[in-house]
Design a protein around this nucleic acid. Sequence first.
DNA 1: GATGGTTGTAATCGAATGATTACCTCACGG
DNA 2: CCGTGAGGTAATCATTCGATTACAACCATC
Lengths: 192, 192
Amino acid sequence: MAADDRRESILHAATAVFGAKTYAGTTTDDVARAAGVSQPYVVRLFGTKQKLFLAVLDRALVKLFAAFRAAVAGEPAERTQRMGDAYIGLLAERGLLQSLSAAFLLGGDSEIGPAARGHFADVWRFLRTEVGMDAETAQMFLAQGMLINTLVGLRVGAAYGEDAAMTELLDLCIPEKVDEVLIQLPTVGDAW
Amino acid sequence: MAADDRRESILHAATAVFGAKTYAGTTTDDVARAAGVSQPYVVRLFGTKQKLFLAVLDRALVKLFAAFRAAVAGEPAERTQRMGDAYIGLLAERGLLQSLSAAFLLGGDSEIGPAARGHFADVWRFLRTEVGMDAETAQMFLAQGMLINTLVGLRVGAAYGEDAAMTELLDLCIPEKVDEVLIQLPTVGDAW
DNA sequence: GATGGTTGTAATCGAATGATTACCTCACGG
DNA sequence: CCGTGAGGTAATCATTCGATTACAACCATC
């Protein structure tokens, strides 16, 4: 396989694993196995585990902005609605939003912290300037996103239909689309 | 020192460290050093690192509910406002909200996951039944909380006044109280 | 002043982990 | 055919980490 394709396939696998087990909880061997290559090769392609994680974050943000830009295009009506749907759509790539959540806890890290803050600030500026949201709308939009991330991280899907409280909350957060989304949510039994 | 006091002091230290470095990123030796005891003693008092973390979560939820119940007491007007202030007040204990955030990413863990889901569901039920919030208010309240957790995890305080986007966002999330809160926020340079 | 429980530590162990080294294999151009 | 570079792995290394063991100091109280 060409190195570029291999890189992408490792990044895809790494996204799923980092998202499921957090940064510190993931081993380079976990990623290698998920990608179907040997552990030394992962290290050789990315240098260090930290650089691999930073590459995962960069790739996640590229995909996030692509999804948002597609949602913003077109008529201004219902823009925020479409943006929310786009965010939900990102759940289709296993671990993508979770890897971001994991990074958002690592602000104190000297390498990952600045990258994570920069990415988050980029999102805010995008909402305020490119999308043109007012500050309060943008804040609520982000807040809803962080709540969704929390529910996914908690594997609340496992409680949907079992626990009345969590069912009610998930119905509110993923309006109209719970059924489709539930299928995509990571489950408790996930090996990674 | 009596064992109970020692337990509490270790839990306090562990809260700060788990909050700063996540669950997997924290070592029992980190906690021991922060608490001023030896590493084996931490393990002996709590059994395993996992049980220590679960104890940190239990203690965090006791404090969370205590703060919320105090805010709910009294006249119904401005209740949600007082609850928000109470949440902000929890930032005074270093790592408390972050430790919860760290747990919320570990839903896939066979031990921590159910505990985290249970705690989160407890909060939701509390908001809906004891506080009497309607579903949408409770959802927005939680979402704001998750956004605040994110900002704290990112160490956004480091960017306050430096980055216009982050300054604007922090002003919105911590209305009227940024100055007092900034002092309490963990900084990038924190050893843990 | 022995006895025994409580509070603690030093030393150490086995497993796991990130990284390095040395090597293998195969396609392809000269 | 023969290099030679790209794609990839097995073996291994030094550290780190959670946990265990064995032991020490203190302090009641009979």
